[in-house]
Computed example of a mutant assay.
Amino acid sequence: MRRNFLTALLALACGFAGAGLWSVSGLDNARTRAWLVANPEVLPEMAAALQRNEAQVRLAEVGDAVARPFPGAVLGNPAGKRVLVMFTDYACGYCRSSERDVARLIAADPDLKVVIREWAIFPGSENAARMALAAAQQGRYAAFHKAMFAGGAPNAEGVARAARAAGLDMARASAFAASDRAAAELARTTQFARTLGFAGTPGWIAEGQVIEGAVGYDRLKAALDGSEAA
């Protein structure tokens, strides 16, 4: 993987360095290497450009489907025109800390729809993700989502407590959580995450930008505004 990345960087360097890096017989690797050694400040820019290009290719593979939520699994304005997609896990501490940023973004923009994709990657979190989908089906997703993150670990007691706090019909919720439909939705989200190249949670899509990690309010706001943030 590292070899492929360096090869791609080398190819990208040609475009940055210009025609002077080419010989009559093709790419002059020695001259390219020398130029890069003499101008190392371009490497971070090249790496960022390469990552953006690769992200766009992956995003095109998932298409618009990734931004279409499981019915009800949204925060903010369900009819909002500006969309932030968040891949999250209730056992993820970084996801929990990012909840403040998401709440702040929603408060600042009444046209923001936050599509939550339940990506249960931590041990013990799948039951919480399944119950979250059950809450979405009952129109109580936001209440369950908030109670789940406020309640600590997503163990059986925590999931039941959050479900009661959200006012779920427990019999209906338990039946749906155990259903093939819930399993299929979790599998679908996992496939989206793998296609996008996410290594963990949280993961984000904002205005065509694929972002990984707890990057904070400013970075997410900049992406939603269609700009890059340092």
Score class of each variant (00 low, 15 high):
residue 4 N to F: 13
residue 6 L to W: 14
residue 9 L to M: 14
residue 11 A to Q: 12
residue 13 A to Y: 08
residue 15 G to K: 07
residue 16 F to S: 12
residue 16 F to E: 15
residue 18 G to M: 01
residue 23 S to W: 00
residue 28 D to S: 14
residue 30 A to W: 02
residue 31 R to G: 05
residue 32 T to R: 12
residue 33 R to G: 15
residue 35 W to S: 06
residue 35 W to T: 03
residue 38 A to H: 00
residue 43 L to A: 15
residue 47 A to V: 13
residue 49 A to H: 11
residue 49 A to W: 08
residue 50 L to V: 10
residue 54 E to K: 12
residue 60 A to T: 08
residue 74 V to E: 13
residue 82 R to F: 03
residue 83 V to K: 09
residue 85 V to L: 04
residue 87 F to I: 07
residue 93 G to S: 07
residue 94 Y to V: 06
residue 95 C to E: 06
residue 96 R to E: 11
residue 97 S to A: 13
residue 104 R to A: 14
residue 107 A to T: 01
residue 107 A to D: 02
residue 109 D to S: 02
residue 111 D to E: 14
residue 112 L to A: 02
residue 112 L to P: 01
residue 112 L to M: 05
residue 112 L to E: 01
residue 115 V to F: 07
residue 117 R to P: 05
residue 118 E to F: 01
residue 119 W to E: 05
residue 123 P to M: 08
residue 128 A to D: 07
residue 128 A to R: 14
residue 128 A to C: 10
residue 128 A to G: 13
residue 129 A to T: 11
residue 138 Q to A: 01
residue 140 R to I: 00
residue 140 R to Y: 04
residue 141 Y to I: 00
residue 145 H to L: 00
residue 151 G to M: 03
residue 154 P to R: 14
residue 159 V to M: 12
residue 163 A to K: 07
residue 169 D to L: 05
residue 171 A to Q: 13
residue 172 R to D: 15
residue 173 A to G: 06
residue 176 F to G: 09
residue 179 S to R: 08
residue 180 D to W: 00
residue 180 D to Y: 01
residue 186 L to T: 02
residue 187 A to L: 06
residue 189 T to H: 09
residue 192 F to A: 11
residue 192 F to M: 08
residue 194 R to G: 08
residue 194 R to T: 15
residue 198 F to I: 04
residue 211 I to P: 08
residue 213 G to E: 10
residue 213 G to Y: 09
residue 214 A to K: 04
residue 220 L to Q: 12
residue 221 K to F: 00
residue 224 L to K: 06
residue 227 S to N: 11
residue 230 A to S: 13
residue 230 A to T: 10
